[in-house]
Structures are given as C-alpha cells and as structure tokens.
Simulated assay, not measured.
Amino acid sequence: MSLPETNPAKWDDLTVRFVSSAAMTFVGAIAVILGGVWFQMLVVFVTAVMVWELWMMIRPKEPTKGMLMAALVASVLSGQLAYGHLWGLALFLIVPVVGATQLRTEAKTFFIFALGIQLAGWGLVHFRIDYGFTWLLWLMLVVIVTDIFGYFAGKAFGGPKFWPKISPKKTWSGTAAGWVGAAIVGFIFTIFTNAGLWVIIMSMILSFAGQMGDIAESALKRRMGVKDSSTLIPGHGGLFDRFDALLGASLFLILVADVFDVPGVVF
C-alpha cells in the first residue's frame, strides 16, 4: 500500500498551483511597479475577463455573448481611463444594461456585479495615479495578508463559521485573524511613511471590505451552482476567484476617497 505522501497527483497539483501563483505575482508586480499604461492595460484585461466569467456563470451556453460583453468592457474602460472624467463613470452603465437586457433571468445579478467590477477596476487605476505605488502596495498587502492570516488561523483554530450558508469554510477565527494581519500591515506603514496611526484603523476596515468582496463572490457562485468562476488559471479557478477581495477593497476606497476624502487625511 502506497503512502499518501508518495501520491504523484497530489504533488502535480501543488506544482501547478505554485507555477500559476508565481506567474500571476510576477506579471502583477511588474505592472504595478511600472504604473501608467502598463498597469492600465493589465487592469482592463483582468476586468474584461471577470465580466466574461460573470456572464459564463449565468449563461454558460452563450459564450459568444460573453465574449462580446468582455470586448465592450475593454472598450468602455479603456476610453474612460484615457479621456473620461468623474461624470463619465455613467458610461459604466452601458455593459450592465446591455447584458441585463439579454438575460431572461439573473438580470439584476449581472447588472450589480458587472457595474461593481468595472468601478473597482477604474478605482485601482486611479488609486495608483492619485496616491502612487506606495499606497497601492498598501492596498494589495492588506488584501494578501488578510487572506494569509485568515487561512492559517482558520485551519489552526477553527471554531464558529462566519457565514455558513454562503461560505461554509470561513470561520470567525480566520476573519478576526485577517483584521489583525491588516493592522500589522498598517502599523508597518506608519513606520516607513508619513501616515498617521489612522492608517491602522483604515487597514482593518479595508480588510473587512475585502472579506465582503470574497463573501459576495462566494454567494454568487453558490447561487449559480458553480465551484469556480472559470478554469482559466490552472489550480486556482478564475480571475474572479483570485481578485474578489481586491474588488471589495477597491470599491471601499472609491467611497472613502471620492466621498469622504479619507485617504487625503490619513495619508
């Protein structure tokens, strides 16, 4: 009888996941560092693919319409980033409206998620432009560290589920650990930047916003009866699965930056 550790399939999956993660990290890091058109192109591509994944979860038998939705997203977002102003965000209604009119069911679901995905993508680009590499790095580290702390704490401590009907694997211990990890990231940034202690609180709130993005996508997948948003990324699922928390965090920052101007005070 062979031991579990010698099962080659297990290690093959681990290798695929590691290679996929390394590739995504490398491409993303380069784009974030370079900024400008390079980061914009990556965001436009990822945003368009996520809207395609959204469509395919709702209407998997109509892939052509899904590709047309993705192309329309890329066109609208590219044009808005190049020439648009804040009032031009109304253009982001085009894709949700067009998509919703093509759906007999789940039209509201598509409308809400498609609009949120586009606004989050726009927010990431403008956060990079308005606040620079350092604070986009802060945003990404908060999301990443929240996920890492939450994963290991949930595995180690277990306990009551955070929202069992929607995401049965998430626990309160993992959720709280994510907030702690985010607070640590915020504290580190108070040491190496001019940010005040408010950034620690902001980090924890941002962590929660990211967790809600994850929960929202989990609810969507459960509603659609699918395990992953797609199979584009070997060993990981789809781009929507990988960036759901970042979408939630980005939408939160749009609110605090453009409505309350919190970043201007904290940073």
Rank of each mutant, 00 (worst) to 15 (best):
P63K: 01
A74M: 10
F113M: 15
T25W: 06
A100Q: 11
S78D: 07
F111C: 10
L77Q: 02
V43R: 02
F113K: 10
L91E: 09
V95E: 03
A31Q: 09
F26P: 04
T105M: 09
Y83I: 12
F26D: 03
G35N: 08
F39N: 00
T105G: 07
W55H: 05
Q118R: 00
V76L: 11
M57P: 02
F113S: 11
T101M: 15
L68M: 11
V32A: 05
M50N: 07
T101Q: 15
G88F: 09
H85A: 04
V27W: 06
P63E: 01
L86R: 12
V27K: 05
Y83S: 13
V37G: 10
V95M: 06
A23C: 12
A100T: 08
M56K: 09
H85E: 05
S75L: 15
I94V: 01
Q118F: 00
Y83L: 14
S78T: 15
M50W: 08
V49N: 05
M24F: 11
L103M: 15
G79L: 01
I58G: 10
I33S: 11
V49C: 04
L34T: 13
K61N: 11
K108F: 14
M50G: 05
L119G: 09
F110K: 05
A70K: 12
A107S: 15
T101W: 15
A29Y: 07
G99Y: 04
V51K: 01
V43K: 02
M50S: 11
V27N: 05
P63D: 00
F92R: 11
L68T: 02
L54P: 10
K65G: 14
A31L: 10
V44E: 00
L119A: 12
M67Q: 11
A74L: 08
M57A: 06
W55A: 05
P96E: 03
F92M: 14
A71Y: 08
L103F: 11
F113C: 13
E106V: 01
G79P: 00
I117Y: 00
V37Q: 15
I33T: 12
F39T: 04
L86G: 07
F39D: 02
V46A: 13
T64I: 14
A70E: 12
I117Q: 00
M57Q: 04
